[in-house]
Amino acid sequence: MAPRKSAAAASRKKPAEKSGLNGGITEFDKATELKAYEEMLLIRRFEEKAGQLYGMGFIGGFCHLYIGQEAVVVGMQMALKDGDQVITGYRDHGHMLATGMEARGVMAELTGRRDGYSHGKGGSMHMFSKEKNFYGGHGIVGAQVSLGTGLAFANKYRGNDNVAVAYFGDGAANQGQVYESFNMAALWKLPVIYIVENNRYAMGTSTVRSSAQSNFSLRGNSFGIPGHQVDGMDVRAVHAAAVEAVAHGRAGKGPIILEMLTYRYRGHSMSDPAKYRSKDEVQKMRSEHDPIEQVKARILELKHASEDDLKAIDKKVRDVVADSADFAQNNPEPDVSELYTDIVL
């Protein structure tokens, strides 16, 4: 598959000169486009279903949907290999599905049931999979940045060539421990990729209201950590940047920051009326930059697949999601003995 350069570089700062970090987009071949389409669609449909189950009272507490941001995690994950670790905050369902965790187990955790990934003890914000190298699932804004740096520390310590990917939000980027971590990661050349998922808002606060420097790719400057802004709505751009960032990490060059320019369509959590932004703003992102629609349009234009083929993918995805919802609603609650297990060893 000879990668082709794209003419359009979407909303990137620089025009596409080359592929990867400095603004380029590597075209996907047919198989990759279809894979990206299916994986993003799975996250979208899964999250829509989670929203419905919340409204029906099957899911309680906080539930933060990833709708709109699918390209970020899917594009990143496609550049990782076995043993690379992933860690994120509470907006985590997409990351779990992307790392290959089962929809059933994730949904059953959302409903607080026995066969959820944490046996119902964690819920939406706290799920983990040792098998898939997914390290959670964290509710304290910013905590995952230090933890992710620690995962990278372990890689370096063991002398393997794995990288750790730590995802965090534009709001989280203002926490002090983020900079303490940046310093250590740069000092010790740790193989960590910091992904700032800049979806423009931290709850109701837009980045310009919270951040003296709202170009988050520059936040590692004083530590000598390279950073790049990436069109996080275009899965090809994400992937191209991911490939280079991963190579940087594996080569022992230390940390790197990718600021993904993205957008969340839904409220911060289920109880956010989202009065801090206009409906037009949301509508514009949905209609002009939707990550899934972009892939779909290309697939149809390049005749990688027909409408019917895509419908078949849609159906497959819907079936997986419906099955997970069924499972999650009918799975029993955890046994009461679980209350006292897993506290200390």
């Binding site: 309680g60 507490g61 955790e109 607080g112 049931r113 944490s118 046996h119 119902g120 003890k121 964690g122 819920g123 939406s124 706290h126 609650e333 955890p334 009461v336 679980e338 209350l339 006292y340 506290i343």
Partner: peptide, 16 residues
């Protein structure tokens, strides 16, 4: 409260 971190599951939360 019980001597456990707060569980998410509805039945366990009530017990905690």
């Amino acid at each position: 409260g019980k001597d456990v971190p707060m569980p998410y599951a509805a039945n366990l939360e009530k017990l905690a």
